[in-house]
Nucleic acid binder design. Sequence first.
DNA 1: TATGAATGAGACTTCATTCAT
DNA 2: AATGAATGAAGTCTCATTCAT
Lengths: 214, 214, 214, 214
Amino acid sequence: MTQAPRRKRANGVESRQRILDATVEIAGERGYDGTSIAAVSAKCGLPASSIYWHFKDKDDLIAAVIERSFETWLTAVELPGEGAGAPLERMTAMAANIAKSLVDAPDFLRLGLMLALERRPTEPRGRTVFLQVRDISRRRIAELLQGLFPDLDAPDLATLTTYTVAGADGLFVQREVAGDDVDLVALFEMHARMVYEAAARLSRAASPAAPCGD
Amino acid sequence: MTQAPRRKRANGVESRQRILDATVEIAGERGYDGTSIAAVSAKCGLPASSIYWHFKDKDDLIAAVIERSFETWLTAVELPGEGAGAPLERMTAMAANIAKSLVDAPDFLRLGLMLALERRPTEPRGRTVFLQVRDISRRRIAELLQGLFPDLDAPDLATLTTYTVAGADGLFVQREVAGDDVDLVALFEMHARMVYEAAARLSRAASPAAPCGD
Amino acid sequence: MTQAPRRKRANGVESRQRILDATVEIAGERGYDGTSIAAVSAKCGLPASSIYWHFKDKDDLIAAVIERSFETWLTAVELPGEGAGAPLERMTAMAANIAKSLVDAPDFLRLGLMLALERRPTEPRGRTVFLQVRDISRRRIAELLQGLFPDLDAPDLATLTTYTVAGADGLFVQREVAGDDVDLVALFEMHARMVYEAAARLSRAASPAAPCGD
Amino acid sequence: MTQAPRRKRANGVESRQRILDATVEIAGERGYDGTSIAAVSAKCGLPASSIYWHFKDKDDLIAAVIERSFETWLTAVELPGEGAGAPLERMTAMAANIAKSLVDAPDFLRLGLMLALERRPTEPRGRTVFLQVRDISRRRIAELLQGLFPDLDAPDLATLTTYTVAGADGLFVQREVAGDDVDLVALFEMHARMVYEAAARLSRAASPAAPCGD
DNA sequence: TATGAATGAGACTTCATTCAT
DNA sequence: AATGAATGAAGTCTCATTCAT
């Protein structure tokens, strides 16, 4: 603090961040194979060999990117208090929140989906990591649904969770393809409502009584 | 067996097919950058230089793959008579049909989605082609919905179509990730039902009357 | 004549010309290695394999180009009666004539010089041919000089001939490099005058007498 | 012998030189297209990929060769004091000097002329560089002539300079083609004399007086 | 007389990675 | 904590040429 550190003095943490920043951007745009160490090096300004000082290999780098992106994304999503309001309102609010975070930082999910779709003989660790963190999200959604609709039986809950996640993924793709024409927030809210109705219906079926209307 | 083909009898059409066959498989598993001409050459048995006789370059090859795959997929999907039955039944039947075709030949959509997600400076022609043929599908879905629910206004129709396509994409991804655990046919049918109900609801809102129940 | 030959009916002679035309142009611009059979094929519209029907191989093709170009160039140059007028006028007239032909069809000499400058282990036949036809020109110049200055002794004649040819080559290069700014005709005329004066001087030295001035 | 260098001690500067050395030799013999990176790699002992560490691409490599060769050549030519002696003697001395340097290191001019003669759609940077450095030489000749013949008017000076350079190029080509039979030094001296006489004549014409004789 | 298709060699270039400093 | 230099493998694509029709 007293000695105003000579900028550019070797700073491991900052270099690591710069590398990761460059990598999300490139990998988020071009996928695993499309991401070359040389391109990352060019974008972050550090020589390729420095990247290997921070990361074991390309696989490791991509995996680290997925990890860090997920954490960033998670904190962006979880800020708002989850507990308040009526069920439907809570669900649409959360959906809107997630939609916003995806619009702001689409690289994470874009890269993740690209990795997820690939089917190569030796699976990149980044893919594994993505599928793991994605499973965390999935579990959280399942818990939420179960909290709101305690009567749902296990298979229905699983199906509904799958459907929820699928809708999110699909709508995200839609926006990536069609661009800003697509109002992701509105679509996510609609998706939340549809899931809500389906859950209510299934719930009703499981525990009888309750007339029409919602 | 009778004809013992004098090895290497030039046959352009068949070679072209063999190249395309090899390419769908590889590109469907590894995406654009992951598809090396050498790998295609190894899989189809023709030397790399022969591939360049049939296709201008890699871009051209991938684009051709998308084109042919779409046509194949389309004929596989469209066979069943579209006209019969009650609206809901027709929709679920179609959904099931599409789901089946995707389970049988997932390469087309997998590759297409990978291409669609990429955002590289110079867009591969394959991506453009995929987005075009995808738009054809989209229009067909819109027409179907409009046929079944003539009261839907334009914005609702557009939103619903987007939602329908998104659900299909998302569920497909889900299955790609989770494997055979996911019953794609059942999920597509469920999706069809949910879209149906939403369409009915929106339709009812547009032209009043009609009580609860379906 | 009666039967207006269906254009495009297989015509060996014409095809050969088309191939040669395409080749002069390309080889004149890019040299031996820079001339690919594919490029020639593209420019003349015939498939590569057809080129091999007319010419044994690339070497043969280039050599044929040199041969034909030289003949064309020679007839263009030799038309005017060589015999008329005073010595100096005859020389400048010829020089101007040659300059004009080089401006009109520079491909021959450009390609020839490129070939001549190369020094590859296995010399292209085109180079040999060029050096041969070039020697014909050289001999003709020597004869001309000897005709005009019979007193020149053999070594002087050789040197003067070399100098004459060198000047022509060099001025041609100059024009190729600087473009139309260079008035090749004027420079060739000047070159002719300088050679003339030098020849006169050397001639005078060999056989004494003859006052100052020309 | 004492230091037995632990093979493969990274040394950028020396490697760069080795690559350039190999390239002049090959490119000077076979031109731009005839120079393959593989051949350079074989001649200099470094793998092809290492060449790309030092040079962006083939174009860059050839351009660097031209630059370095010109500098080398320039220092070889300029050593002798330019100022001494009578005009004609100074000119012939310089000419002889240049001739000697060209006999010793013909690669530079040979490659340069090959590049200069080519006319490809996208001009190699090496060609541009050659034409630039060549223009420096041209200017120097013009200055020399003007210094010796201050009465020459601008157009005459330009023409004479062009003629001087052209003669040098042409004689060089002559020697390249005919081999050691051609005494380049003698021819260059003769060229210098002829240019001198022409300059004197033109100079005399510009500022009258002075009888016949030389 | 011509050509569609094929082919191995080799072109240029980029890749991921390592190593000595 | 970092980097200049090197490297073998692999990338895309073009080469000259052949062959069956």
